[in-house]
Simulated assay, not measured.
Amino acid sequence: MKVRLVNNGVFTLLEEFTMPLTPPESGFYWIDADTEDLEELQPLFGLHELAVEDCLTEEEQRPKIELYDHQYFIVINSIRYDDEEIFLRALNIFLGRNYIITVTKQKINEIRAIKPVLWEEEVNAPDRFLYHLVDLVVDNYFTVADRIEAKIEKLEEEILLHTKKSHLNEIISLRSEILWLKKALGPQKDLIFTLNKKELRLINDQLQKYFSDIYENTIKISETFETFRDLMGNLREAYQMSLENRTNEVMRVFTAITTIFMPLTFVTGFYGMNFDYIPLLHSPMGAALVSMGMALLGGGMFYYFRKRGWL
């Protein structure tokens, strides 16, 4: 657990402190905690037992906001895209009048990225801290969306150039992740809508328009992933068509080869009959002439097929 005093964007790490913390004359406290620290923090800050239980549960939490008398409990999902897989990390936030507590189970990039933003913006209130943190979380969805779009474009190019059976598994896997993420974006959008529209006494009214901008970005993200879902459907159709075209191409080649060898089979069958009087049967040049004729016949048919575009 790290306790920092934030005053106009300047961080002061409190190496030694006593709980409960005395409200600062200027600025606010940022407590960056793990789930193990909640046992100590709960009685000191009056954290609601249901909120603490949500932080500790192993189940995936839906983004939400719970309003209590002296604090708000907010759950928002941070997104990561590692090793071609999408991960959602729950970011639990307790917002008070002069403090903000962030509780995470895993490392979240936005926690590290918030520091230079707060310094640059000279943040001096926990609700402003909340705004910038939520803004970073939402902006990261655009970064992941760009990577997913690049993945879709690369997959489409590979399918069109050289279709493989493994491409179908990639399409199904990526489509499932997109649908899962699209479903998770619904509650997150509702959360930010609440921060945007509902009157919240711990959040300054002047921040409403800023949360409105984040809400618009959330809508854009939701629409982007809706587009991705449609693209994955088109990609699957392209995969099926590519397989069908490949099969038709193979069948066309086999049909042409069979057609070329049909007259050659007739010739060899004709000369294989047990008759004494067959043209060129007893001629010294018979075998050479028949072989040459067969070669000319096969070559002529191959040239004709190529000229007509059948091969």
Rank of each mutant, 00 (worst) to 15 (best):
M1Y: 01
K2L: 00
N7G: 03
E15D: 08
E16H: 06
Y29D: 03
Y29M: 00
Q42H: 03
L44F: 12
F45Y: 03
A51E: 03
A51F: 02
Q61E: 10
P63N: 04
K64I: 05
E66C: 02
D69Q: 05
A90S: 10
G96N: 09
G96V: 06
Y99M: 02
I100R: 01
T102S: 05
T102F: 02
T104K: 06
Q106Y: 04
K107A: 02
I108A: 00
E110C: 01
I114H: 02
K115P: 03
E120Q: 15
E121H: 04
R128Q: 14
Y131D: 00
L133H: 00
V137C: 14
V138Y: 00
D139N: 08
N140F: 05
Y141P: 04
D146I: 08
R147Q: 14
E156F: 09
T163A: 15
K164D: 05
L168H: 13
L174S: 12
E177Y: 10
E177C: 10
I178M: 14
K183G: 08
D190W: 05
L195Y: 03
K198S: 13
N204L: 09
Q206A: 12
Q208C: 10
F211D: 05
I214F: 00
N217T: 03
I219R: 06
E226Y: 09
T227V: 11
D230R: 11
L231V: 07
G233H: 07
L235H: 07
R236F: 13
E237Y: 03
S242K: 10
L243I: 11
N245F: 07
V253C: 15
T255G: 15
I257Q: 12
T258S: 15
T258D: 12
F261D: 11
L264M: 09
T265P: 14
F266K: 08
G272K: 12
G272P: 12
G272Q: 13
N274M: 14
I278T: 13
P279H: 06
P279N: 09
H282V: 08
M285G: 02
G286L: 07
G286D: 06
A287F: 11
A287I: 05
A288K: 09
S291T: 12
L297W: 10
M301I: 02
K307N: 04
K307A: 05
G309S: 01
